[in-house]
Design a protein around this nucleic acid. Structure first.
Length: 290
DNA sequence: ATCCCTTCCTGAACGC
DNA sequence: TGCGTTCAGGAAGGGA
């Protein structure tokens, strides 16, 4: 994508564009070149050559895929962005929860990202455009894997302790809160809490210092493994090349209710916390601490 | 600060 | 076979 220029936009479902108005988006983006790609939390950032940024949030079922120019859009295509290299970038989104934002400057970007908290992981290397290395980098390795090691962290252990200071919410909704920490969704919260051996209903102000460190490690490990396995495909998720992830094969508790805990064999339980399906091992993640 | 509810959506799964 | 209902979930916004 880097180096390509947008030549125009077709908005098939205006509800997918948060800002500006669809017609304004088309006018503003035409002729702009993609300078770089970035990410904040769950938001994808396409930095354009005039200082503006195209922001994409995929939410549940959104995806970005390239297709040959003027290919018939998929049933779920919501926005088609034409590129100058003979390809079209399609934003497809079955459930229409995903959103596109075009902001003119850093102030506009900051407004879109106003509820995004600190990054649990440090920025990852983005493959260079149109190189053999980029093509090679997306080849799926044989078999899913544990993370070779935790990825570089964004927040440090000390940062994490500071983040928790003054907080007393239940762990599950706290970790889902993007203002507290960016990037964790329902799957990875359950996986992180299991790894940390902490009950989702535990209140954050009841954790011992050792448990705070366990939680931090659980978060970093769960995310690192997800990235190493190129994402969790429970139904729809595909990467930009249309390839499914493999992390669903390595989930420890999520959507494994009734199956044995990988650590102790106790059947995994499913409960509801804050309206969210929540999976845990009642033996390894005991009590809710009151 | 925290919790809870509703809204936005489609399609799969389920009950009868 | 074919209805109608329920569920899933990320984020925002309102109310308690």
């Amino acid at each position: 994508m880097v180096g390509r220029r947008f030549t125009g936009v077709d908005v098939l479902w205006p509800g997918s564009v948060d800002r500006p108005q669809a017609e304004v988006l088309s006018q503003s983006i035409a002729g702009r070149r993609i300078a770089s790609l970035d990410r904040r939390g769950k938001y994808l950032l396409l930095r354009l050559d005039d200082g503006s940024t195209l922001v994409v949030h995929l939410r549940m079922t959104g995806r970005l895929r390239t297709h040959p120019r003027d290919a018939a859009p998929h049933h779920h295509a919501r926005v088609v962005l034409h590129l100058d290299d003979g390809q079209d970038l399609h934003f497809e989104d079955q459930r229409k929860f995903g959103r596109l934002y075009l902001v003119a400057d850093e102030a506009g970007l900051a407004d879109v990202l106003r509820n995004v908290g600190p990054e649990p992981l440090a920025p990852q290397q983005v493959a260079a455009p149109s190189s053999a290395a980029a093509a090679a980098s997306h080849q799926v390795r044989e078999g899913a894997e544990e993370a070779p090691g935790p990825l570089p962290s964004g927040v440090t252990r000390r940062d994490f302790r500071d983040l928790l200071r003054g907080r007393r919410a239940m762990l599950k909704p706290l970790l889902l809160d993007q203002r507290f920490l960016a990037g964790l969704g329902n799957i990875y919260v359950d996986e992180a809490l299991y790894r940390a051996r902490l009950h989702p209903l535990r209140r954050s102000d009841t954790l011992t210092p050792a448990e705070v460190d366990q939680l931090y490690d659980g978060i970093v490990d769960a995310l690192s493994q997800g990235i190493a396995n190129r994402g969790t495909t429970l139904a729809d998720y595909r990467d930009s090349w249309g390839t499914a992830g493999r992390n669903q094969e390595r989930l420890l508790v999520f959507r494994r209710e009734g199956k044995p805990c990988p650590r102790c064999g106790t059947p995994i339980e499913k409960i509801r916390v804050g309206g969210r399906g929540t999976h845990l091992c009642p033996t390894c993640q005991p009590g809710s601490g009151g």
